Simulated assay, not measured.
Amino acid sequence: MSLIITPISPALGARVEGIDLRQPLSRESHQALHQALLDHQVLFFRDQPLEPTQQARLAACFGDLHIHPIYPSVPEQPEVLILDTERNDLRDNALWHSDVSFLKTPALGAVLSAKQVPPYGGDTLWASSSAAYEALSEPLKRLLDGLTATHDLSKSFPESRFAVSEQDRLRFEEAKRRNPPSSHPVVRTHPVTGRRGLFVNEGFTTRINELSEAESDAILRLLFSHSAQPQFTVRWQWQQDDVAFWDNRITQHFAIDDYRPQRRVMHRATILGDAPF
């Protein structure tokens, strides 16, 4: 099986053809997909009607899978979470974020499958954290080197929205207990490619630990704005049964919330990674 890989943006992103993701990956296909992910940071596939078991099997080829502490999941496949606008408050996805960066070992990546999409709207943006870092001035790079930042689940999942009922409150408190805030380098080194990238995001990063509150707020505002510039991004217009596979270590993404009252349903399998350095 020969993959056809077509880049769709200078900074990141490629469309992949010539593979059926419903089938178990051969060694050659696994190696080719892994290399394409390293090269392009986010991969897109059309017409891949994955069942949850197939999606989990695909994602598990690249690492252990995460079970989300807040979102509901497919009952028979708990590693596949459900993002459904009729079931969930998804405002936390409508901002730039790196998935579950509050973990001690944040996600390596994720496989996202489009189950139901609106007739228009509902696109997702990805941004290359390495391209954003490389575009910084040398004095700012030197300032950021060695700094760490706190990432907190509660920033994107506030109690006011996710602990309304008694059942939800108990689940929310357990999620916070199991997932206390974590500190990670502001500039992360990719463990395979060695590329450096910004590892702060609007969704979960609360402050830069070594700076005063005012300094931290100012630098984070600068980095959030800088990272979202169009030249660092790619935009994907979803069709039903599309699949996206991205490297969460070196990207951020933003699910545009512009389609209501239309419904949008996505399934995500999240691959655990290692401690950032």
Results as ranks from 00 to 15, higher is better:
I208Y: 06
S183N: 09
S130L: 00
T105L: 14
F44G: 09
R22Y: 05
F162Y: 15
R161I: 03
R249Q: 12
L144G: 03
I219T: 04
E134C: 03
L50Q: 02
S101L: 10
A127W: 10
A228M: 14
T105F: 11
A36G: 04
G121C: 11
S212R: 05
D64W: 09
L37W: 13
R235M: 06
F172W: 15
L143D: 04
T105Q: 15
S156T: 10
I256N: 14
F204M: 05
L220W: 01
A132M: 07
S128R: 00
L198D: 07
E159I: 10
P158E: 12
T193R: 06
Y71H: 10
N248I: 12
P191K: 12
R15Q: 08
P191G: 09
S2D: 14
S154I: 08
E202Y: 10
I4C: 13
W96G: 12
I82T: 13
Q252T: 14
D20M: 03
E79H: 14
R268Q: 09
P181V: 07
P185R: 00
W96A: 11
P106G: 05
V16F: 11
P106Y: 02
H184T: 12
P191D: 02
P10M: 08
T206V: 14
E174C: 01
R22V: 03
G18N: 06
Y133Q: 00
H40R: 10
P72A: 08
P118C: 06
V265T: 03
K115D: 00
G194W: 11
L12E: 11
R196L: 01
Q77I: 15
I4Y: 14
L108V: 01
D217R: 13
D217Q: 12
H40E: 10
P69T: 11
A114G: 04
R161E: 11
R27G: 08
T53M: 00
C61S: 12
